[in-house]
């Protein structure tokens, strides 16, 4: 495993964990209020569709698109996504944006789906649709990251395994802790992933455009380190004008 392989695994694993926590909250809410059978079937169907997407889009990308063009496009995609995650994480860490509240999202989804206060025991289309939509929408971002990072390095398999590992771990832990997903340090994970995606984005755009980074792969670590230092400077600076209270919102 090279440096960029390790960074790839960490970035995909982190991004997948965050998105899976958000998806799991919706699946748990759908399962509790509409019955587990439909919720689990909805979640499994969405995962199968996402898997097909990775194979259908990722494999042709690796085989037929010139690697430099692929790296510029993928780098630009990762850079846009990474800067957006980083900005959001900085604003959340400094108190300017509400933290993602899984407890609140869970309670709101359960309230929306509750049918006469009892869970549905047979197949339920609403429970299926809500779980499918939750997993599919949250998973789409993961698929884009898996395809982008995997295809640009020719490591689609490794990226997929990292995402599947995150899915399994979050699934097992989520089943054990059930409604305590709010304890997952989502913003910290999002911050780390934002740093990695921004670093990868810059690295690939530069490499695809013909820039020769000093130290080759090791320059990725320099980019990551620079963004960590920048985060340590920017968050306290943003905090200095922190609002007294920001209400939690489910977004």
């Amino acid at each position: 495993m090279t440096t960029r392989d390790w960074v790839l695994v960490a970035a995909v694993f982190g991004a997948s964990s965050v998105e899976m926590v958000e998806a799991l909250t919706i699946v748990l809410a759908a399962g509790t209020s509409r019955g587990w059978r439909s919720a689990l079937e909805g979640a499994a169907t969405a995962l199968a569709v996402l898997g097909v997407l990775v194979a259908a889009v990722g494999v042709p990308l690796i085989r037929y698109v010139p690697i430099d063009a692929l790296r510029v496009v993928v780098g630009a995609l990762l850079l846009t996504l990474g800067m957006s995650w980083l900005r959001k994480a900085w604003l959340r860490a400094s108190g300017h944006k509400a933290l993602h509240d899984e407890d609140q999202i869970y309670a709101e989804t359960v309230a929306e789906l509750a049918v006469d206060g009892a869970a549905v025991r047979t197949r339920d289309s609403v429970g299926f649709a809500v779980a499918f939509k939750g997993v599919f929408l949250e998973g789409t971002e993961v698929v884009l990251i898996v395809i982008s990072l995997g295809a640009s390095q020719g490591r689609l398999g490794l990226a997929s395994v990292a995402a599947l590992a995150a899915l399994l771990i979050v699934g097992v832990v989520g089943a054990i802790v059930a409604r305590q997903l709010s304890r997952v340090p989502e913003n910290l994970i999002k911050l780390v992933v934002g740093i990695m995606l921004t670093s990868f984005g810059l690295f690939w755009v530069g490499e695809g455009a013909g820039i020769h980074w000093p130290g080759s792969d090791l320059f990725l670590l320099a980019l990551v380190g620079s963004l960590v230092v920048l985060t340590m400077l920017v968050v306290p600076w943003l905090s200095r004008s922190s609002p007294t209270h920001v209400a939690a919102v489910p977004s």
């Binding site: 800067m83 900005r87 944006k97 921004t198 810059l202 820039i211 920048l230 920017v234 943003l238």
Partner: peptide, 26 residues
């Protein structure tokens, strides 16, 4: 030149966007 300018441009842009977001959220 490229090694310094390209990362600095992206880093500066995120900082400015976050500062703008801070002002907007107040």
């Amino acid at each position: 030149v490229a090694v310094v300018v390209v990362p600095l441009l992206a880093f500066g842009a995120v900082v400015m966007s976050a500062a703008r977001g801070r002002v907007r959220q107040r």
